[in-house]
Design a protein around this nucleic acid. Structure first.
Lengths: 143, 143
DNA sequence: TATTGTTATACTCTATAACTATA
DNA sequence: TATAGTTATAGAGTATAACAATA
């Protein structure tokens, strides 16, 4: 009766699996899940706090703390927005870029490994369906 | 180029989607994700702290805190293990059972809703593949 | 007035280390 | 000695509310 996993239960276990990979790789790269998320959202751009707040689904004050800690660790940089004196632009430092690159590569490799265990046709169908389901979910982890 | 979601990226977005559902429903039921997880792991049994620690993948001391707060909120109960005077058995109170039932029902309904948006054949294939992938992941969310 | 961002505060979650009591 | 669990402590993450500066 443990085999009797409902569809929803399966999705939840899958989420656990992915979260586990995230946490493990994060440990390797010395990033928490929240930090990794944030670095992914900044990536190669320069982002305002309000936008980060929206993308990450966190309160502005939470983002302030997240960016504070990442800045102290030398992963990101705050710069004044030249066109709006209230605003701040967050971008990655070289160290932040390195950490993000490593994190993304390892997460991708690990998840691809999971998918590669499937027969080719099944894998392709599965991936296509996943894409369809998440079409509306914001791309925090852009490729 | 936002359509160019790699297979791994898709999985990650899917995880976000499920985590979002978890968080939202949790808010409805006044449960944090960690608490919901813990209640799911206790369910209809009576569980030792060490076992909870193993199932949830948390340090013993973390579980102590988790159970403390849930106990203060009247969701779980600590009882002495009659056969081992060091040990403790954790079980749900009626309120805890109610919260868990509501949580599980709502999460399941929300996720089923997502899946129901798919054509029947695709949905069945997808669910089958998910089951295959997670065959080895512990069932925290038993049906 | 609305928006951008920060500060102050409080709570949850988590880990590490040291400890008690029992096996 | 090993196991079950707690306490003390510290840090990350998050939210709410109040605030300052700028638009």
């Amino acid at each position: 009766m443990d085999d009797e996993v409902g569809a929803a239960g399966g999705l939840i276990r899958l989420t656990f699996l992915v979260q586990g990979v995230y946490a493990e790789v994060g440990r390797d790269c010395d990033l928490t899940a929240a930090q990794a998320q944030m670095l992914c959202s900044v990536a190669d751009r320069s982002v305002g706090m309000a936008e980060l707040s929206a993308v990450l689904g966190l309160e502005k004050s939470s983002v302030t703390g997240l960016v504070d800690r990442a800045e102290q660790r030398g992963l990101v940089l705050r710069e004044q927005d030249p066109s709006d004196r209230r605003a701040v632009r967050v971008s990655l430092t070289p160290a932040g870029r390195r950490a993000l690159t490593k994190f993304r590569a390892e997460v991708t490799a690990r998840l691809d490994e999971v998918l590669d265990a499937l027969p080719a046709t099944e894998r392709e169908r599965f991936t296509r369906t996943v894409r369809r389901i998440v079409a509306d979910v914001p791309a925090v982890f852009a490729d």
